[in-house]
Design a protein around this nucleic acid. Structure first.
Lengths: 344, 344
DNA sequence: ACCCGAGGGACCAATTATGTCCCACTAGTT
DNA sequence: AACTAGTGGGACATAATTGGTCCCTCGGGT
């Protein structure tokens, strides 16, 4: 591929001559991306999102406006057509500079994944990295979903974001979307049920709901499983063709599950770093605590053709790393912050 | 050419996102080029050449050193192998960014030239632009010269520089080099004779000298033309296959020719902007004054297969422009400063 | 009508860039 | 061997640019 080599040659030379090129481009990419995903947005809100000063954002915005990539409206900044076209082109080159493709291959190989997808940035520092990650997950779904399939999805912030970022697909997918887990915590929009319904709408398919809490003692759970409706939904869940789920740190999941203090202490003492499907695990991927859970269990994953995990932000790197040691998933969608940790 | 398009696409996008990219690259190119041509050179001398402050040069040099493109010796800075390789690659990309190729085509077309060669920069501001121009002229000679040909060369700073920059050609050219003009001014190294001898050595050919002054009244010149030696050399000059010459402003040429005050006044009154082969011409390319001259005359140019003019620096743009209107030359080697004026 | 968030204006402090000069060392010349 | 010129690196002060912070008027949404 002579073409590929000369673009890479040029980028290499430019980085040699302008050692801060990556930084300069990244900065502009981040601003453009944030405005693209959050538009219309004012300057002050933007600087909050980017954890960058108002004046700094303003300088960059002014420059991008002059280049015709952004424009101001009374409601806030928006990208022009030229701006969004530039954004996606820039994404390609930034990824080349950062060696994202190599990183993807390295991680897929090291953790025995079918595929890794990395987006620029660190979701801890820039929420729009999470938005880009969600859009990437939506694209994976679009590729993998076929008519007649069952998609099981979990809840959480990231999943809600994936659901939000699914534009109506050009071609409807006649699929069934089911929640991978029962109700958890108090936030309606983050529930697996809500996510499942929203995704089904975007996909053009149908959904089923699971009306039981995720945290339930075994003696309470057993009688509920005699309900034919609940049994039917759980059956679908366990026979899902595709699973899409987030990965949480032990800390945040314990909070969302409202665990009793004695369990919280147990989890802390055993150095749990993450949680998935009711299992708490330490940094080596060893299970250190199990909570009863109505939906999918870890062992169910081997019956699912395609498991897709989505998660980003450096603070989650340890949990994600441990999870990859524990569970046989297929596709990981993450961000650069996590990827560099995984590659260490 | 998909390859070409994607490099250009990338450069276009980078300029969109980093509007000062050209400036940043040009700066680094200028420093690298200067050190390449002048090495070994100290920082202070370098800043004099570049008309840039010492501290500014130092910052750039420090950066390029860190990237392995330059190194310091007790005698001064030199380029590394990596540095000179980078320089020539960078030249290519800078020329793309600046649209040098389009400029070359435009000027060749507008002034009915077979070919135009433009190097980056303005020789008035950066003497190493002139060095690069000289190297480019040397390369043209290497391409055009064939065994048995006669090459006529004029004197002057630029011509001396061309002679200096001719490395021994990989393949010797069995040619005869002759001075296009007689002696002019006081500077030995700038004489057409010196230039001719030096070039002949580098080329691996032979040379003939013309031992008469360029400025000579007709009644003194005629008897000299009866000398069979002088006649023989002049005959060779008028039958040269290739002519290589500089272009001077009227002002500097009048100075070099030590013209009498009444002639100086005449030249100023008639708004002469340039001089070539003893002819002073105004901005429209009209001859306004003629001095007797022993070497080549303007009308001899039509008998020469390939005429190559070399000149740069914005202060010469007007003279060069006028000359191109006056004389049917084939190849122009100039710099960006002049080229942008020619293109207006 | 009211409120909130928008962009543009403005001022000031902090940081970076640039100018200038000094010193010890080395290489070249006499 | 002695001397000189030019070198790179150090250092400090000044100038310019960057970034932070806050204010004001306007427009859109409720």
């Amino acid at each position: 591929m002579p073409e590929k080599n000369s673009v890479e040659m040029l980028l290499e030379l430019l980085q040699l001559v302008l050692p801060n090129l990556e930084e300069l481009l990244d900065e502009r990419y981040r601003v453009l991306r944030a405005i693209y995903f959050l538009q219309p947005i004012g300057r002050r809100a933007l600087s909050d999102y980017l954890l960058t000063g108002e004046r700094t954002v303003r300088n960059l915005v002014e420059e991008l406006k002059q280049q015709g990539l952004l424009q101001t409206t009374p409601l806030g900044l928006i990208t022009t057509k030229k701006g969004s076209d530039t954004l996606w082109l820039l994404k390609e080159y930034i990824e080349k500079i950062k060696g994202i493709e190599n990183l993807e291959k390295l991680i897929a190989q090291r953790y025995n994944l079918k595929r890794t997808i990395i987006v620029s940035g660190d979701a801890d520092k820039d929420l729009t990295a999470k938005k880009e990650m969600s859009a990437a997950a939506a694209r994976v779904l679009e590729q993998e979903l076929k008519n007649g399939m069952i998609l099981a999805v979990s809840g959480g912030t990231t999943m809600a974001m994936v659901a939000d970022s699914m534009d109506t697909f050009s071609e409807p997918k006649v699929v069934t979307v089911v929640p991978a887990r029962g109700g958890l915590g108090e936030d309606v929009e983050k529930q697996a049920n809500t996510v499942a319904a929203k995704m089904a709408k975007s996909l053009g398919g149908s959904y089923r709901l699971l009306h039981i809490p995720d945290v339930l003692e075994e003696e309470l759970l057993k009688p509920l499983l005699t309900s034919s409706y609940i049994n039917e939904v759980i059956d679908k869940i366990k026979h899902a063709d595709i699973l899409l789920h987030g990965i949480g740190t032990a800390e945040e999941m314990a909070g969302r599950r409202s665990l009793q203090p004695i369990f919280l202490k147990k989890i802390q003492d055993s150095k749990a770093v993450g949680e998935a499907f009711g299992y708490y695990f330490d940094a080596e991927g060893r299970i250190v605590h199990t909570t009863p859970s109505a939906g999918l269990r870890l062992e169910d994953l081997r019956n699912i053709a395609i498991s897709i995990a989505v998660g980003g932000g450096v603070s989650k790197a340890e949990a994600i790393k441990a999870f990859l040691k524990l569970a046989p998933i297929d596709i990981l969608v993450t961000d650069e912050g996590v990827a560099r940790k995984l590659a260490e």
